[in-house]
Amino acid sequence: MQQDHYQVVNTGWENRRRVYGCLIHLDIRDCKIWIQYDGTEIGVANELIEYGIPKQDIVLAYQPPYMRKLTEFAVG
């Protein structure tokens, strides 16, 4: 069963220390892309828009719902 839950994770070793961290976390729910976490410089939403995804199909889930209403993106 497909869950439509996607993450890009940095994992490995730096010097003698373990490195692990989420860079991007996306979910697809109700035909919308929910950006749960974006640790990139460019911004996943900007990349999606460049690929032709309309802003009304992108939810900035890392923002509280009352703040989403103030953006051009989907509320949820």
Rank of each mutant, 00 (worst) to 15 (best):
M1P: 02
M1I: 02
M1K: 02
M1G: 10
Q2G: 09
Q3A: 02
Q3E: 08
D4I: 00
H5K: 09
Y6F: 15
Q7K: 13
Q7G: 03
Q7P: 03
V8P: 02
V9G: 04
V9M: 10
V9L: 14
V9T: 12
V9P: 06
V9N: 08
V9S: 04
N10C: 01
N10S: 05
N10H: 05
T11A: 06
T11M: 04
G12T: 08
G12E: 07
E14V: 15
E14W: 11
N15Y: 10
R16Q: 13
R18D: 09
V19G: 03
Y20G: 05
Y20C: 05
Y20K: 09
Y20L: 11
G21M: 02
C22P: 01
L23A: 15
L23Q: 14
L23G: 04
I24E: 03
H25L: 05
D27H: 06
D27C: 03
D27Q: 09
I28T: 03
R29V: 11
D30I: 01
C31W: 02
C31Y: 07
K32Y: 00
K32R: 13
I33M: 02
I33N: 02
W34I: 01
W34V: 02
Q36K: 14
Y37P: 02
D38I: 08
D38W: 06
T40W: 07
T40A: 08
I42Q: 14
V44W: 04
V44P: 07
N46H: 14
E47S: 10
E47C: 11
L48A: 10
L48R: 09
E50W: 02
Y51R: 15
I53N: 00
I53G: 01
I53T: 10
K55Q: 13
K55E: 13
Q56C: 10
I58P: 06
I58K: 04
V59A: 12
V59C: 09
L60F: 12
Y62F: 15
Q63A: 14
Q63E: 15
P64I: 10
Y66C: 02
M67P: 02
M67A: 12
M67E: 14
M67S: 13
M67G: 00
R68P: 13
R68E: 12
K69H: 04
L70Y: 04
T71Y: 08
T71K: 04
E72P: 01
F73D: 12
A74I: 01
A74P: 01
G76M: 10
G76W: 08
